[in-house]
Design a protein around this nucleic acid. Structure first.
Length: 176
DNA sequence: TCGTCGATCATCT
DNA sequence: GATGATCGACGAG
């Protein structure tokens, strides 16, 4: 059980999206600890990805996407859903991985959809811009040895632009 | 069972 | 002033 290091996140968004499957996302808030296995992700690129928030350049909202890998990026969508992302690549690239589905631990409750994931963890914009690779962080990712089977790569969901990119990754938990 | 639509607000034009 | 990386309710079939 170990916190994933900076290097893990400083790779291309597509590689990171695939590598995050089966990893455990942990959030500690006061005496509450929430953790879940990541089972579905989507990659969002930089300027050249029309579906990405980073498409129109760096703004006060999306700056974490332009940081080096390992920063949290949380935003509010449709006025009611908080979506959690982790930045990828090197500083200035502009890219992040959206967590679309998780399986909570230890009760193994399945949560599908970024809105429900954000709701479970209680994420808000206050959790955006966090460096999740530091020891003092309240949000981080660990490798507990879970692997996913039947991993599929499909087109992204819920977007209206660049719908042809096969940048969505999902699978089912195989073993620990 | 499936498709359509309303909710609701931060961000960008 | 329009819109969106969504979800859940509701009505039709």
């Amino acid at each position: 059980m170990k916190m994933l290091p900076q290097d893990f996140f400083c790779r291309s968004v597509t590689t990171l999206a695939e590598e995050l499957l089966g990893k455990v996302l942990i959030y500690e808030q006061g005496d509450q600890r929430k953790q879940a296995i990541i089972t579905e992700t989507e990659a969002y690129g930089g300027i050249d990805d029309a579906a990405s928030h980073a498409h129109k350049g760096k703004t006060p909202r999306n700056w974490p996407m332009y940081e080096q890998g390992g920063y949290s990026y949380v935003y509010l969508i449709y006025g009611m859903h908080h979506c959690f992302n982790i930045s990828a690549g090197d500083k200035g690239e502009g890219g992040a991985v959206l967590i679309r589905a998780v399986t909570t631990l230890p009760d193994e409750h399945v949560l599908t959809g970024p809105g429900r994931v954000g709701k479970f963890f209680g994420f808000t914009r206050a959790q955006s811009g966090y460096k999740i690779t530091e020891q003092k962080s309240y949000i981080w990712v660990e490798d507990w040895g879970y692997t996913l089977e039947n991993v599929q790569q499909t087109t992204r969901v819920g977007i209206t632009k660049a719908t042809d990119k096969m940048w969505r990754y999902l699978g089912t938990i195989a073993r620990r």
